[in-house]
């Protein structure tokens, strides 16, 4: 005898599902914005003349890329209180997501920066720009454009990875699905709906990023 699907039973939990979805959106927006900033700073540190910043950035990237996200999360939420650093689940979740995304973006943005034609930097120096002005005005914008699609993919990966923060009881979408199926035992339906909502979010994210990208990187003639 086959399994009978019962999506109707989920309706009574729609508030739980929606508030979980909303939490996932909030986690994603905040960690994406902060993660991109951290990635830019990390990439800038990688080419700084101060060797501590250079090596520090490199060590950070290696540390994060070579350890599991869930361990990073548990370390922040369960480990740090041992040395007096306490935070709420949501704060710990966001911090872990930002640190994780920042490391991957550091590496991605650095790759874009490495492809800057040397002549453009020389031209900028010749015009009298300082190192900082050169990084912000000349190197970063085209570098970011070169790796934009990788940045977008990484941000989406982090949105999907935010499911893991349910493990420290952040009440986001996966937490909601766990909660619902523990009440009504409709695991198939609960997780299927959660999966579809993640799919929708990923699709929307890509759409929004593409809209931003096509506006920001347009090379159409500007009316002055």
């Amino acid at each position: 005898m086959g399994y009978e699907l019962n999506f109707g039973a989920l309706l009574e939990y729609q508030d739980v599902l929606l508030s979980g979805l909303w939490m996932t959106v909030k986690l994603t927006v905040v960690s994406t914005l902060l993660g991109i900033m951290l990635g830019i700073l990390g990439a800038a540190a990688r080419r700084h003349r101060n060797p501590f910043l250079r090596h520090g950035s490199k060590a950070y990237v290696e540390l994060i890329r070579n350890t599991p996200f869930i361990v990073q999360l548990f370390f922040i939420f369960f480990g740090l209180p041992a040395i007096g650093i306490k935070m709420t689940e949501v704060e710990a979740g966001i911090l872990a997501l930002v640190i994780n995304l920042g490391a991957y973006l550091t590496e991605i943005i650095r790759a874009g920066i490495d492809n800057t034609p040397k002549g453009q930097i020389e031209a900028a120096r010749t015009l009298g720009l300082s190192s900082r002005q050169i990084f912000i005005r000349i190197i970063l914008p085209p570098a970011f454009q070169r790796v934009y699609s990788s940045v977008v993919s990484q941000c989406i990966i982090v949105m999907l990875g935010s499911a893991v923060v349910s493990q420290i009881s952040v009440q986001e979408l996966t937490f909601a699905a766990n909660f619902i199926q523990s009440r009504n035992f409709l695991s198939f339906e609960s997780y299927l709906v959660a999966a579809l909502l993640y799919l929708l979010l990923a699709f929307l994210m890509r759409l929004i990023f593409n809209l931003i990208g096509s506006r920001a990187f347009s090379r159409e003639e500007k009316q002055s």
Binding site: Q120, A123, T126, L127, F217
Partner: peptide
């Protein structure tokens, strides 16, 4: 002193 290069070196993201 100004300098002009063989490879132009205009900034591609600026008009």
């Amino acid at each position: 002193v100004g300098m002009v290069f063989q490879s132009f070196n205009l900034f591609p993201h600026l008009t």
